[in-house]
């Protein structure tokens, strides 16, 4: 497809994959938008808002479950920060009455959300629905939701309990790929009848993905990079194949040194990092982690990327939460690190 210019190494086949990926993303997004808009107008209640809550819509969620949910529910429980991002960006914050909290009894909001997110989304511990260490149905009933949006961090048993025992519909949103985020945006928009907001948001997301693939085409080579999100005395936790962190690195024009790992979230020993000798190190910050945390990791100062100053910290949420922010903030941030001036 692309030419290998004088002396530069041949373009990695990965770039082709990126382009194909992008085309798929755009097609899926466009298809979703059309389908959702059509569904919305077909199902839109003809009479006034008093009737609205009695209308329902049947959707197919990311796990392939067909769920009948009330149209435009007024009380929504969101059991994952990434879904909360979609809900917020679609202007639906006022519907949210409950959010996930680890160990709700202890005010566990801070375990799931960064201080920025808590402030931006105006979350309070009174909204806590306890999903860990074990699901506590009382905390869910307490916020009296009409609908629950959840990801797979909520256990299958808990989902069944909410659906069958408590009789509250649960829609599972677990995008399999970056483009899946756009599908989820459309899905949420369909339930709440906000096709215009969805089109605007998906437009922004597509724009960012497109920009990134253009950069990929233009650069001579992909630098090798270690993207780590946590550290302990044994080594550096990073993203393996088929994870969002890995996709993000690739679309931002980098080659992850853990792309060939055997597990999705491997811990690389310092010896493995030394031998792979990445050009760049990108580390996730937030949730108590900062540069000095990583600097305390084993053999940190012996890595040539550290010696050369080729390292950068970015928000952990941008690397780990599969939501619009990952695309809108994470991709430009990584591009800026790996290919400055291109984002």
């Amino acid at each position: 497809m692309s030419l290998s210019r004088d002396g530069s190494p041949p373009v990695p086949p990965r770039r082709t994959v990126s382009v194909v990926l992008f085309v798929v993303v755009v097609l899926v997004a466009a298809g979703c938008a059309v389908a959702v808009t059509a569904a919305y107008y077909a199902l839109r209640p003809s009479s006034g808002p008093a009737n609205a809550s009695e209308k329902t819509i049947t959707v197919t969620d990311d796990l392939g479950r067909k769920v009948t949910v009330p149209l435009d529910p007024s009380r929504l429980a969101v059991l994952s920060p990434s879904i909360m991002d979609i809900v917020y960006r679609l202007g639906l914050r006022s519907h949210v009455v409950g959010v996930d909290c680890y160990a709700a009894a202890l005010g566990g909001l801070t375990e799931d959300y960064s201080p920025d997110q808590i402030a931006l989304w105006n979350l309070s511990p009174s909204m806590c629905v306890q999903i860990g260490p074990s699901f506590d149905p009382e905390t869910l009933v307490n916020v009296t939701p009409d609908l629950v949006l959840a990801s797979t961090i909520v256990s299958v048993a808990a989902v069944e309990e909410i659906t069958n025992t408590l009789g509250i519909p649960v829609v599972m949103l677990q995008p399999p790929t970056l483009s899946g985020i756009l599908v989820d945006v459309s899905l949420v928009a369909a339930i709440f009848g906000v096709p215009v907001a969805a089109q605007a948001l998906n437009g922004e997301l597509s724009e960012e993905l497109y920009n990134a693939t253009e950069v990929d085409q233009s650069v001579a080579s992909f630098p090798t990079v270690l993207v780590t999100y946590s550290v302990d005395s044994n080594g550096y936790w990073t993203f393996g194949p088929s994870t969002f962190g890995e996709s993000l690195t690739e679309i931002a024009g980098g080659t992850s040194i853990s792309a060939n790992a055997t597990t999705p979230y491997p811990e690389l020993s310092p010896a493995q990092v030394l031998v792979a000798n990445p050009d760049w190190i990108v580390y996730g910050v937030g949730f108590g982690l900062n540069e000095s945390t990583y600097a305390g990791g084993p053999l940190w100062s012996d890595f040539s990327a550290v010696k050369d100053g080729n390292l950068s910290g970015i928000d952990s949420n941008w690397l780990t939460e599969p939501d619009p922010t990952m695309i809108l903030e994470g991709i430009p941030a990584l591009l800026e690190v790996l290919h400055p001036g291109t984002s």
């Binding site: 160990a103 946590s230 302990d232 080594g235 084993p298």
Partner: peptide
């Protein structure tokens, strides 16, 4: 550990024992 999931990785290190330090 149940109520402090953040620390569980590091505490697990002590629980299982290792030479990483």
């Amino acid at each position: 550990l149940l109520y402090n999931p953040n620390g569980s990785v590091q505490v697990t290190f002590w629980l299982l024992g290792g030479l990483g330090l």
